[in-house]
Simulated assay, not measured.
Amino acid sequence: MQWRPEDFSLRYQLLFPLYAQLPPALGYRLAAQQAEVFKQRKQDEAATIRTQMQLALPEASAVQLDGWIDDYYRMVEQEALDTWYLQHQPVKQIVELQGFEAVEQARKQGKRVLLTGGHFGRFWMAGAAMRARGFTTGTITRDGGATNSHGLHPAEYRYRLFKLQRLQQALGGPFLVEGDELRPLYRALNDHLIALIFDVPYTEAHKGRVTVNFISGTIDLPAGIYRIAKKTRALIAPFFMRDLGEGRVMAEFSAVLDPYDYDETALMGLLAQQLEQRIRENPGHWWLWPALPLLRSNNNESGNSQPTFG
Rank of each mutant, 00 (worst) to 15 (best):
L161I: 14
I225V: 14
I219F: 02
K163A: 09
L164E: 09
P259Y: 00
V210N: 01
Q169P: 06
I225L: 15
P201I: 03
V177Y: 04
H192P: 03
E181K: 07
F239T: 00
R160H: 06
D199M: 11
G247S: 11
E178Y: 12
F175V: 07
I236A: 00
E178R: 13
R248V: 11
Q168M: 11
E252T: 04
S254A: 15
G172Y: 06
I225P: 01
F240E: 00
A251W: 02
L182V: 08
K231Q: 13
A234F: 04
L171N: 04
L182T: 05
Q165Y: 09
Y186L: 14
N190E: 15
M241E: 01
I219S: 01
E204G: 06
I228T: 07
E178P: 03
A205W: 05
F240L: 02
S254G: 08
F162A: 07
P259N: 08
M250S: 15
I194R: 00
T232E: 08
D199S: 12
I194N: 02
L221R: 00
D199F: 09
L196G: 05
H192Y: 15
Q169K: 11
H206C: 06
V177I: 14
D199Q: 09
F253Q: 02
R248Q: 15
Y159A: 05
I228A: 05
L182G: 12
L167Y: 06
E204Y: 08
I236H: 00
T203G: 04
R227W: 13
A195C: 09
F198W: 06
Y157E: 08
A255D: 15
Y157R: 03
I197D: 01
V200L: 11
P174M: 07
D191Q: 15
L193W: 12
D180Q: 13
I225C: 07
G179Q: 11
L196T: 03
N190R: 14
R160C: 05
E252S: 11
L161V: 14
R187S: 07
L164P: 00
V210P: 01
I225R: 03
G208C: 09
L189P: 13
L164V: 01
A195T: 12
V249T: 14
D191R: 14
T203W: 05
R160E: 03
D261L: 12
D199K: 07
L171W: 12
R158K: 11
E252A: 12
K207L: 09
L221T: 03
E252P: 06
A205R: 13
